[in-house]
Design a protein around this nucleic acid. Structure first.
Lengths: 336, 336
DNA sequence: GTGAAAGCGCTAACAG
DNA sequence: CTGTTAGCGCTTTCAC
C-alpha cells in the first residue's frame, strides 16, 4: 500500500545531477546557474514533483504549520476566530491544524503535546474551562515553543494575548438593560476562574453600580462547563426561577442559546418577561425567539491578530521578550 | 529557538544500550528481555521522553493521523460529524486534522494535497459545492491513498461512502407538509450537481406525486454555494416571493437558517404564512422563529461509521476491492 | 557552479 | 536477547 512519489533523487538521476544541486535549484539558491535551475524546475513541473514535507520538517525542525486549540468548533465564536486565523496563515504559507478540547483539561494537554511533538511551529489557544494548571504550557514556552493565547487567557503566563474588551462588553450589556428600566438583572456565566468570566462579571458589577442597582450574589449563576452540557444551564435556570429577576446578562455563546432553550422548555416562567442580553457570535440571532440583544466579539479579527503575532514570534530570530496584549472592542447589537 | 528534546540515542547512551534496543524496548518488542524493557521504560518515563513522530512518519510512511475535509466547520452538521470522527479516531490512537474548503474546489485541492503530502494515512471528505472534477482524487486513490466520502459523495468514484438517506429525508419532509394540507410546496436547495441535492430533490418529487401534487420547476430554487453567501438565499427568496407558495422544503443546514433570516428581513411577506421543513442539525431549532420542522441527519454516527471504514481500510493488508455505501436514516423532528 | 557526505530521529533487516 | 548498519527524503556544510 505504498504510493510511489518522486523524490529529489529521481530528479537528480534523470538529469544527471546530484541531489544537492537539485535541492538547491528547487529552493532557488543563488549558487545554481539559471540554466540548471530552469532544467530542474521544468522537469519537476513535468513529473509533478512534490517535496516531502515530513523529511523537510525532520531536517529543519520547522513545519510551516500552526496548531489551534479551542474547546469546541461547534461554537460560533470559535469557528469565526478560526476563519480569521486561516486567512492570515494561508497568506503567509502556513498550514493550520485544528483540535478541540471539549472543555477537558486532559484532552487539552494531549492535544498540545501532540501538536508540539508533531512539529507545529507554534500554537494559538483558548484555555479549556477546566484548566487550572498551566505549568506544562509554561514549560513548553520556556523551551522556546511559541504560544499565543486568545479569548481565555492565563493571567500568570507571559505571552502574547488577544482578547475582547470583556469588561466593556459586560458593562454595555447591563447598561443597556438598566436603561430599559430593568431593576433586577441576573447574570449567567461560565467557569469561575476563566479570564473572560472574571472580566465580564466586573463589567456587570460596574454597570449595576453606575445605575444605582444593588449587586446580589444570588443573581449570579456559574456554569462550570460554560454551557457545554445543557443540564448545567437548566440547573442554573431552575435556581434563577426562585429569584424575581426581570433581565439577564449571559456571558457566552453556548450559554446564550442554551439559556433560551432552557427557558422555552420551562412552563412555569413567562419567557418574554425577562429581557435578555448576551455574548454571542451567532449569525442568526435575528431568528431567535425570544428576541435578545447580542454582544458580539470581533472574532475574525481576533483570529487574524493572534495569528499575526504568532507567526511574527515564530519567525523572529531572537527570543521574544516583550509581549503584547491586544484588546479588541465588542459591539452591541439590538434586535428590531 | 531550538528546543532540545531527548532522543532514543540519549537513552541508549545513558543506559549503555544500542539505539535499536531502546527502540524495540519502547515498542514492547518480544525480542527484548523484561528487565531491559523495564529499565528503558523507567528511564524514558523519568526524563519524560517523547518519541518524535516526524521521524517515525518519515521512516514508516505512516503518521497515525487522518485528514478531514469539509466545507465549513461553522455548520452544525459538519461539526457533529467531526465529533463522531474524533471519537473513533482517538479510541484507535489516530490523530485528526481538520481543514475547510469554504466550498471552493481550489481550496479543496490544496487541502487534499497538503494532507496527502503530510502523510496523513487517509482522508474523510465531503465534496465542496463547486467541485466537479474529481480526477485528482481518483489519482490519489489509485496510488493507494484511502479516501472515504461522506454526505456529499462522488457518484463516479469507487470508494467507501457514508450518507444519510436523503431521499427518505426529502420525502418525509414534503409528506409532512402535504399532510398538513399544503398544496404548493416550494424547494430551496444547494448546488445542482451535488449528490445530496439530487437525492433530496428526488424525495421531494416522489412525495409530491404520492400526494397528488404537481411538480413545478419554478418552485425549485438552487443556491450554488449552498447558502454560504446569504445573498444567494435572498435572491432565491425574492424569486419565490413571485410564486404563490404555502410551504417550503429546505435542503441544508445553512440554507435553512439563511431562509428564516431572509424571510424575516422581507417586509412584504407574511413569515408565518409559509410552513417550513428543512434539513438542519442545529441543536437550537426550538428557539427559531418562525417554527420549523427539522430533518436531522445522524451526523455523529455518520462520522463514526466513516472513520471506522477509513481506519479499517488504512490498516488492511491488501488493497480494498469491495466498497460499501452505508446509508443512515434521517429523523423528522416536529416542534411543539 | 556542482558534488560528496553527513545527519535530522527513528525503524528494521541482518548478524551474532 | 542485543548490537551494527543502512536508510526514509531532505538540507547543508565542506570540498573541488
Amino acid at each position: 500500500m505504498a504510493f510511489e512519489n518522486y523524490t529529489i533523487k529521481d530528479i537528480a538521476k534523470a538529469l544527471n545531477l546530484s541531489p544537492s544541486t537539485v535541492s538547491r535549484a528547487l529552493r532557488d539558491s543563488y549558487e545554481i546557474s539559471i540554466e540548471t535551475k530552469k532544467m530542474v524546475l521544468d522537469y519537476a513541473e513535468k513529473i509533478n514533483y512534490r517535496a516531502n514535507p515530513i523529511a523537510r520538517s525532520l531536517k529543519e525542525r520547522k513545519s510551516y504549520s500552526i496548531g489551534i486549540v479551542v474547546s469546541e468548533i461547534a461554537n460560533n465564536f470559535f469557528s469565526q476566530v478560526i476563519d480569521g486565523i486561516e486567512s492570515v496563515a494561508y497568506a503567509k504559507n502556513y498550514q493550520v491544524v485544528i483540535s478541540q478540547t471539549h472543555e477537558s483539561s486532559e484532552r487539552e494537554r494531549l492535544n498540545v503535546e501532540h501538536l508540539y511533538s508533531r512539529s507545529t511551529d507554534g500554537l494559538l489557544m483558548a484555555l479549556s474551562a477546566e484548566t487550572v494548571d498551566t505549568t506544562y504550557l509554561e514549560d513548553l514556552m520556556k523551551k522556546g515553543f511559541p504560544i499565543v493565547f486568545f479569548d481565555r487567557v492565563p493571567a500568570q503566563l507571559r505571552s502574547h494575548k488577544v482578547i475582547a474588551d470583556n469588561r466593556q462588553g459586560g458593562f454595555e450589556a447591563v447598561q443597556y438593560l438598566a436603561k430599559k428600566g430593568r431593576k433586577k438583572i441576573a447574570h449567567l456565566t461560565g467557569a469561575k476562574k476563566l479570564s473572560i468570566t472574571i472580566e465580564r462579571l466586573e463589567g456587570y458589577k460596574t454597570a449595576l453600580m453606575a445605575n444605582g442597582l444593588d449587586f446580589s450574589p444570588s443573581l449570579v449563576k456559574y456554569c462550570q462547563y460554560g454551557g457545554l452540557h445543557q443540564q448545567e444551564i437548566e440547573q442554573a435556570v431552575a435556581e434563577l426561577s426562585q429569584e424575581d429577576y426581570d433581565a439577564i446578562f449571559v456571558s457566552g455563546d453556548k450559554l446564550t442559546t442554551g439559556y433560551l432553550q432552557a427557558m422555552k422548555e420551562r412552563e412555569d416562567v413567562n419567557v418574554h418577561h425577562v429581557m435578555i442580553a448576551g455574548f454571542t457570535n451567532s449569525k442568526v440571532v435575528s431568528i431567535f425567539s425570544p428576541t435578545i440583544t447580542a454582544i458580539r466579539q470581533p472574532a475574525f479579527e481576533m483570529g487574524e491578530r493572534a495569528a499575526e503575532l504568532l507567526i511574527q514570534q515564530i519567525e523572529s530570530k531572537h527570543a521574544v521578550e516583550e509581549f503584547q496584549t491586544v484588546v479588541l472592542p465588542t459591539v452591541l447589537i439590538e434586535q428590531k
